[in-house]
């Protein structure tokens, strides 16, 4: 026994090496089989903090692009302001209190998760009932429409993306106002389908498609996409139009949630008329 201890003491270097190396190999093998179970990985606090700081620093390099986008958007918003002023001046003869009311309010939100490769795609945003978000609000970006709020929790909401089998948005061809329902057929994430466009409309590739005034949730004239191809199915008097979306759904980062403050009023009135008819 004593000689064994002496032997180990004499060759302690080799045994320390053996111990550490077998520990490493054990870790490697264990890690190969139970990757998720191991706790020393990049999600632990130390390395996560370092990597997060590095990402924060890296984001500074994209500030220029971000600024360009923001200034573009500012310009666009400013032009819209001017437009709305003109409208109220034109309408000053009619006594209409609502012209001075804010009809839509916008809440900016960050996309927390997003899918594009399923048949029914949802987004999650970081705004919820605490920020005044309710079901069925429209979601847009500066390049076009995104979808409609489906469920709301305290600080988050899920959005039925335009790439969903059950979403229908009323849209129109901008140049002559002919409108129809806009849906997604589940194919390419860059294209949606606009149906029920009358055949007398002279479509040209590249025509702009915008939201129609008949939508309760979406403000009018929000850009959606451009006309790509159209076809007339046999025994139908309508074109079915393939529309290329302006928004790249794979690159969504910040979106706006639109609150139509007169939605409830409109809805109640319409319901009243419906029940009166019966």
């Amino acid at each position: 026994m004593r000689s064994l201890l002496l032997f180990i003491w004499k060759h302690y270097f080799f045994f320390v090496f053996l111990l550490l190396e077998s520990l490493c190999i054990y870790l490697v093998v264990q890690n190969n089989y139970y990757q998720r179970a191991s706790f020393i990985n990049s999600s632990n606090r130390l390395s996560a903090n370092v990597l997060e700081t590095a990402t924060d620093i890296r984001q500074y390099f994209y500030l220029k692009d971000e600024n360009e986008n923001l200034s573009k958007e500012n310009a666009e918003l400013r032009s819209r302001l001017l437009e709305s002023k003109l409208v109220s001046i034109n309408d000053q003869h009619t006594v209409n209190d609502t012209t001075l009311h804010q009809k839509y309010t916008y809440t900016s939100a960050k996309v927390v998760s997003n899918t594009t490769n399923r048949r029914n795609n949802y987004l999650t945003l970081n705004k919820g009932s605490n920020q005044g978000i309710t079901k069925d609000m429209a979601v847009i970006t500066n390049t076009g429409i995104v979808g409609r709020v489906k469920d709301v929790s305290e600080n988050f909401c899920t959005v039925m993306s335009m790439l969903h089998s059950q979403i229908i948005v009323s849209a129109k061809v901008k140049k002559d106002g002919s409108f129809g329902p806009l849906t997604w057929d589940g194919g390419d994430y860059e294209y949606v389908t606009l149906s029920d466009i009358p055949t007398h409309v002279r479509l040209v590739k590249g025509d702009t498609v915008v939201t129609s005034p008949y939508s309760r949730d979406f403000p009018e004239n929000i850009r959606i996409g451009t006309v790509d191809t159209w076809e007339r199915k046999s025994r139908e008097n309508f074109y079915t139009v393939r529309v290329k979306l302006l928004t790249d759904f794979k690159k969504l980062t910040y979106v706006y949630i639109v609150n139509n403050q007169m939605r409830k009023e409109q809805q109640e009135l319409e319901q009243k008329s419906e029940t009166d008819k019966e």
Partner: peptide, 20 residues
């Protein structure tokens, strides 16, 4: 290093060997 590369034990094994 393994913590950052998500390769538990791999770099440690190589390092311990060259230290030996």
């Amino acid at each position: 290093i393994d913590m950052f590369y998500d390769t538990l034990g791999l770099h440690a094994a190589a390092c311990v060997f060259i230290a030996y």
